[in-house]
Design a protein around this nucleic acid. Structure first.
Ligand SMILES: [Mn+2]
Ligand SMILES: [Mn+2]
Ligand SMILES: [Zn+2]
Ligand SMILES: [Zn+2]
Lengths: 138, 138
DNA sequence: ACCTTAAATAATAATAATTATTAATTAGAT
DNA sequence: ATCTAATTAATAATTATTATTATTTAAGGT
């Protein structure tokens, strides 16, 4: 897999870093720090949780992953394509939702905002997933 | 001011609760739990921080205030009108942005999503505020 | 292949944010 | 005025995150 091909000066390709990035790319979701920590443990049993924190911050800084705004704990993802999120208010499940049109529309709105130089935008949809709806009804 | 006129059964109109709600309505921003705690202390010097947490959760539950999804600490607001947020990536400042059109557009997109029953939607705009841009340049 | 060195790691301590516990207080009903 | 479930204050406990530091290591130069 292609690794840390950024405009780097001194970036070390450590095992820990590569496994964390690989995990995020394969996980294909929005794992918490603990999810990542547990996920890479099978490969790197002696990894420190601080290393997970450090690398997630590092990778986000280098724009190889993104941090997702959620209430409560930090979450990360490897999906760098601009996209939106569908969030279940019951179980907290977060699904990606891609819509070029919505992105275009939002960016166009953004271009009219002054006092702020807008770099990016995303939309959250809040509701209830099928699983949680089935539970609520009967 | 109108208080807790919700479909309530047993809701107590305590001083603490009312001051917290009043603070949020007058603050007109997105204060953290600590902001609220510090803000109501002048009126209620003996208030416990746990009471602030409890009431913020309570008021959000009753839909008298809203919790805002931000990275890091929890934030709350009394602005119940559907609206969007402009967030400075440098200083973290959060500004409200109302746009009926964007809300309408997003809800229309939402109506086409299946597997989820969407209840609400909001859009975040990320960028840099004038103040932070001035600092960065010269 | 060996040296050098800045960067990264593991282990752990420290701090910050949030939740749980519990005895005392109180709003609102009777 | 009395009653009672809800709320509160104080504080302990738990989680999440950041800081510290001695040790290890990736990568570049010889
Ligand atoms: Mn995503
Ligand atoms: Mn707002
Ligand atoms: Zn769900
Ligand atoms: Zn700013």
């Amino acid at each position: 897999m292609d690794g840390l091909n950024t405009s780097a000066k001194t970036i070390k390709y450590t095992n820990q870093r590569m496994e964390i990035l690989k995990f995020l790319r394969e996980f294909n979701g929005h794992p918490t720090v603990d999810d990542v920590y547990e996920g890479v443990k099978c490969k790197l049993s002696r990894i420190s949780k601080a290393t997970v924190y450090n690398n997630l911050r590092f990778l986000a800084e280098k724009e190889l992953i993104k941090e997702v705004n959620t209430k409560g704990v930090s979450r990360f993802e490897a999906n760098l394509v601009t996209h939106h999120h569908i969030i279940c208010l019951e179980c907290g499940d977060i699904k990606d939702y891609e819509s070029e049109e919505l992105t275009e529309y939002s960016l166009n709105v953004a271009s009219k905002i002054d006092g702020f130089k807008i770099e990016s935008t995303d939309t959250n949809f809040y509701g209830y997933c099928n699983k949680c709806r089935r539970k609520q009804n009967g």
